[in-house]
Computed example of a mutant assay.
Amino acid sequence: MPHSLVLNILPLAPIPAGYLTGRHLHALFLTLVSSVDKQLGDYLHDAAADKAFSLSPLQTKKCPFKKHHSLQWEHAESIPEYTPCWWRISLLDDSLFGKLTHLWLNINPSKPWHLGPADLSIANIFGTHQPDRPWVNACTYAQLYEQASETNRLIAFSFATPTTFRQGKFDSVIPTRECVFNSLLSRWNKYSGIEIPELSLDALYSSFVNIKSEKVTNYEINFVGMVGEVSYRILGDVEPLVIKQINALADFALYCGVGRKTPMGMGMTRRIAIAPSQKITKQNAELSFPIQG
C-alpha cells in the first residue's frame, strides 16, 4: 500500500546549507528506519536498485496547493533555528509502512534527531489527505487501480522538483510520454502486485508543456532537470482498459515520482487538475512549449 507522509519538523539549531542535500536527507531517513528496525535500515542502505521509497527536499515554505509551482530543492543559506519545516516521505512497498508503524505511532517531539550538527524535533506526521495537504495521501494499489477512470483522456502533471530521465548512458530532461509513463510503469509493476504486462502509449500525445530547466548542484555531480507542468491527451479509438491503465499510473505518480534520484528529492511529481486554458480542441491544438535554462 503506497503512503505519502508529511513530517512537520522544527530545527533546534541552524541547519547548515551543506547538510540540506539529498544525500544527507537520505541518510536521515535511514536513521529513522534503523531506530525501529536496524536490519531493515541496513537493507535499504545496501539495496542499490530496490529503493521502495522517495523523499522530498526539506521545505521551509507552506505547502502550495492553489498554484502548482515547484518546491524548494536547494538552499543557498542555512535554515535558522526554530524555522518550521516539512518533509515528504513516500513508501511504495506494502510491507514497508507496516514495519515502520512503531516509528510513526511513537514519534516523541522531545527526542532530537540529527541532520549534520543540528538537532531536529519531529512535531507530528500527517498521513491523511486534506485539501491543503496535496502531498499527503494513502491508498491501496487495488483502490488506485479500481478507481482509475476508463474515460478520462486528459492527464496533467506538476513536476515539483528537477526531473531527469536516463536514456542509455545519458540523461534527458524532456518529459516524453515514454520517459514519464515507462518510469511509472516499471515501479507500478515492481510494487503493486497488479502487473500491467504491456502498455501501448501510441495514442498518448503532449497537449500542453510549460517547463524550464534547472541545475541541481548538491550531488557529487551536477544534474540538470526540468520543473513545470505537462499535459497529455489520449486521442483516437482507445480501449477503456488502456485508458484505465494510463489513469492508474498517473494517479500513482504522487507516491513514486518519476525519473532519476527520487530517493534523494528529485522527480517529485503529482497529478493535477487541468485548467480550462490547457484543454485543446480540434480547432485549437496549439502546443505551448517554453523551455528555459
Rank of each mutant, 00 (worst) to 15 (best):
residue 202 D to Q: 14
residue 227 V to K: 06
residue 177 R to V: 08
residue 165 F to K: 01
residue 178 E to P: 05
residue 178 E to T: 11
residue 175 P to A: 13
residue 192 S to G: 06
residue 226 M to V: 08
residue 228 G to F: 06
residue 165 F to P: 00
residue 211 I to T: 14
residue 205 Y to G: 00
residue 210 N to S: 15
residue 202 D to T: 12
residue 184 L to M: 15
residue 221 I to C: 08
residue 209 V to K: 11
residue 199 L to F: 02
residue 171 D to Q: 14
residue 222 N to R: 10
residue 180 V to M: 00
residue 185 L to C: 01
residue 196 I to D: 06
residue 186 S to Q: 12
residue 189 N to G: 03
residue 224 V to A: 09
residue 169 K to I: 10
residue 175 P to D: 09
residue 176 T to G: 06
residue 226 M to D: 03
residue 173 V to S: 00
residue 196 I to S: 05
residue 159 F to I: 12
residue 178 E to K: 11
residue 164 T to R: 04
residue 176 T to S: 13
residue 221 I to N: 13
residue 179 C to E: 04
residue 215 K to Q: 10
residue 176 T to M: 06
residue 207 S to R: 09
residue 208 F to T: 07
residue 168 G to K: 07
residue 192 S to H: 07
residue 174 I to W: 13
residue 177 R to C: 03
residue 171 D to R: 12
residue 200 S to N: 15
residue 225 G to M: 04
residue 208 F to W: 13
residue 214 E to K: 10
residue 164 T to L: 14
residue 161 T to G: 05
residue 216 V to C: 02
residue 181 F to S: 02
residue 202 D to I: 11
residue 157 F to I: 03
residue 212 K to G: 10
residue 156 A to Q: 15
residue 218 N to T: 11
residue 182 N to S: 10
residue 208 F to Y: 15
residue 183 S to I: 03
residue 222 N to P: 03
residue 201 L to R: 00
residue 179 C to Q: 13
residue 219 Y to G: 00
residue 157 F to L: 10
residue 200 S to D: 15
residue 219 Y to W: 09
residue 165 F to C: 01
residue 208 F to V: 03
residue 208 F to M: 04
residue 177 R to L: 03
residue 191 Y to G: 05
residue 182 N to C: 12
residue 185 L to Y: 02
residue 166 R to S: 15
residue 155 I to R: 01
residue 157 F to R: 00
residue 189 N to P: 02
residue 163 T to F: 11
residue 156 A to N: 14
residue 220 E to F: 11
residue 172 S to I: 05
residue 211 I to C: 14
residue 175 P to F: 02
residue 209 V to W: 10
residue 161 T to L: 07
residue 174 I to G: 04
residue 176 T to D: 02
residue 169 K to A: 05
residue 176 T to W: 12
residue 157 F to G: 00
residue 168 G to Q: 04
residue 209 V to A: 14
residue 161 T to A: 14
residue 186 S to L: 05
residue 187 R to C: 02
residue 156 A to V: 13
residue 210 N to F: 13
residue 220 E to D: 13
residue 176 T to F: 04
residue 182 N to R: 06
residue 215 K to R: 14
residue 191 Y to R: 11
residue 157 F to M: 07
residue 222 N to E: 14
residue 160 A to T: 05
residue 188 W to T: 00
residue 165 F to T: 00
residue 225 G to T: 11
residue 171 D to V: 11
residue 154 L to S: 07
residue 185 L to R: 02
residue 213 S to I: 08
residue 158 S to A: 15
residue 175 P to S: 06
residue 190 K to E: 09
